[in-house]
Design a protein around this nucleic acid. Sequence first.
DNA 1: TATTGTTATACTCTATAACTATA
DNA 2: TATAGTTATAGAGTATAACAATA
Lengths: 159, 159
Amino acid sequence: MKKTKGHPLVEPSGSGGKIALGPLETFIGFHLRIAQDVSFQTYAHHVGESRVKPGRFGALLLIGQNPGLTQMELSRALARDKSSVTPLVQALQQQGLIIRKSCDVDRRRVTLWLTDAGEEELGSLLTHAEEHDRKLDAIVGDKKEEFLALLRKIVNELA
Amino acid sequence: MKKTKGHPLVEPSGSGGKIALGPLETFIGFHLRIAQDVSFQTYAHHVGESRVKPGRFGALLLIGQNPGLTQMELSRALARDKSSVTPLVQALQQQGLIIRKSCDVDRRRVTLWLTDAGEEELGSLLTHAEEHDRKLDAIVGDKKEEFLALLRKIVNELA
DNA sequence: TATTGTTATACTCTATAACTATA
DNA sequence: TATAGTTATAGAGTATAACAATA
């Protein structure tokens, strides 16, 4: 992906972007999608050649914040099917970032724990994420709390 | 995916959601991601068994709003590589929703046009999208303009 | 019977690189 | 040389269904 000056779909008019959006101009869902896309791609580019793909960062962080999390709990937290979690945690294990222990009280369950390397990697990823989010903070400015409140409201009323 | 009551990650505390988020609590990027995810899944579920996947809606709409768009223009507008656009437009063509004509003035180019069926399908998709976005409107309320302005600002300053 | 996790399988979306044809 | 589009190919990410082990 080339680095562009301004997003082709949400450009200040007159700058040469001639694509018409029609009804989408005022769709919240559409702008949410583009903003998330740009934010994610910027972050992914920033992290670059990290060993941990952006999509795995969330899992690593949830395990770090909730040691002993089971795969089903992780599945629910990520809102992904359990069969999608299996290859994810296997990859993290293979990278030496987590260990998986079977649960004593319910031997069906697998609990997840960060290794020392996992803690270290998570710390590094968090540093990058914080840098990225500081850019977003600067853009949003003093509207941040209001903005976050609306995003949370969307999540809670739609889910 | 099961229909859940409240998103597992952004739940009013005390409702049984015991997953800790740590630093993510105040990350704009994180909340953007979850909000977009929920919004998208709600829309996808709403459209249901449509012939056109949510991801193709954007392309169909851009062609509808910009008749004669070339594949490269579509590629830039969607911020996707041209090689990703080829199978996309081929699928839309196979569904009888668009036609592709080679451009007279530059015979390398392919221009894209909706068929009557494409117009009809787009109309139906737009109706669903509007219904979905009305839910978002209700959630955001009178903060909508401010909210959209922030989303646009994120896109323009990050891209 | 219900739940946890795995496996087999498949589909979508995306990209890189090499190619053709035009310019 | 540079651009528009295709093809071959590969890699994430995801889901459904059938399964084994356990509750």
